[in-house]
C-alpha cells in the first residue's frame, strides 16, 4: 500500500499549508448551514405535540452533544496515533481539539439544563446520561490541565494522550446509558435504526445543524492545529520561508 501521502500529510509544513487552504472552505459553509439550520429550527419547523415550542432547544442541544463526543473521539484517535506511531502532528491535533470539545460539552450540558427545567421539572438530575456527559467535561479539562502542567512538550503530549485513551471508555457509556439504565433522559431520536422518531419537517433543520456544527469543528480544528504547529515548529527552517510569504 502506498502510504507516502500519509507521511506527507503528517509533515507539519505540508499540513500547515493544506489546513490554511482548507479552513475557509470549511468555515463559510459551516456558517451558512448553521444560519439555515437556525432559521429552519426556530421558524420553519412546527411545534411539537408534547413540548410545544420548547422542543426547539433540540436544534442546539443535539448538535452540541454530538460534537462533544465526535471531538473526544477525534482527540482520542489522534492521541493513540501519536503514541503508537510517534507522530508529533497527531499530538498537536489532540491538543487543538481539547478546548473545542470542552466548549461544546459545556453547551450540551447548559442547553440540556435549560431544556430539562420546563420539560422534566428540574435543572439537573444525577442520571447516568447526564453524569457521564459531565465526566466528559472533566476529561477535557483534565487533559488540558495535565498537558499544561508538564513543561516538556513531548512528555506532556504522551501523558495527556494516555489520559485521553483511558477516558475513551466514557464514550460508549454516554451513548448507551439511556438503554443500559433506567434514565430520565430519553433514548436516541435519529441514530436508532428503523423508522425515524421525528417527522421530516422537524428532522431536516436538525440534520442541517448537525452538518453545520461538524464542519464548524473541522474549521476550528484546522485553525487551532495551525497555531499549534507554529508554536511547536518555531525553529524549523520551513517556517522561515512560510512566514516570508
Amino acid at each position: 500500500m502506498d502510504r507516502t501521502w500519509l507521511h506527507k500529510l503528517a509533515s507539519p509544513p505540508h499540513f500547515y499549508r493544506i489546513a490554511g487552504r482548507l479552513a475557509p472552505w470549511l468555515g463559510w459553509p459551516a456558517l451558512a448551514l448553521i444560519l439555515i439550520g437556525l432559521y429552519g429550527g426556530l421558524v420553519l419547523a412546527p411545534a411539537d405535540h408534547q413540548q410545544g415550542e420548547g422542543f426547539r432547544i433540540l436544534y442546539v442541544h443535539a448538535p452540541s452533544a454530538w460534537l462533544s463526543m465526535l471531538v473526544y473521539a477525534t482527540l482520542a484517535l489522534a492521541s493513540g496515533i501519536g503514541l503508537i506511531w510517534r507522530i508529533k502532528l497527531a499530538h498537536a491535533v489532540a491538543l487543538a481539539a481539547a478546548p473545542i470539545g470542552a466548549w461544546f460539552t459545556f453547551v450540551a450540558l447548559a442547553t440540556g439544563s435549560l431544556w430539562g427545567k420546563p420539560m422534566w421539572g428540574t435543572w439537573w438530575v444525577w442520571d447516568a446520561r447526564l453524569t457521564a456527559e459531565l465526566i466528559l467535561l472533566f476529561l477535557y479539562l483534565g487533559f488540558l490541565a495535565l498537558h499544561g502542567a508538564i513543561d516538556d512538550t513531548g512528555r506532556a503530549d504522551r501523558a495527556a494522550a494516555v489520559l485521553a485513551l483511558v477516558g475513551v471508555i466514557n464514550l460508549p457509556v454516554i451513548h448507551y446509558s439511556v438503554y443500559w439504565w433506567n434514565t430520565l433522559h430519553q433514548g436516541a431520536t435519529i441514530t436508532k435504526l428503523g423508522k425515524p422518531s421525528i417527522t421530516f419537517d422537524m428532522l431536516w433543520p436538525l440534520l442541517v445543524m448537525l452538518t453545520g456544527f461538524t464542519l464548524c469543528f473541522a474549521a476550528l480544528l484546522t485553525r487551532r492545529v495551525q497555531a499549534e504547529i507554529l508554536r511547536r515548529e518555531r525553529d524549523a527552517a520551513w517556517l522561515r520561508a512560510e512566514l516570508a510569504r
Binding site: 468555515g27 426547539r56 466548549w103 453547551v107 435549560l114 431544556w115 476550528l220 485553525r223
Partner: peptide, 24 residues
Amino acid sequence: YVWPAFGLACAVLLWNAWAARRAH
C-alpha cells in the same frame, strides 16, 4: 428557556471562531 439556549450556543460558536483565529 429557548432564547438563552440559542443565545449561549451562538455565543460559544462565535467565541470559538474568534479564539481560533486569534490563536493562529
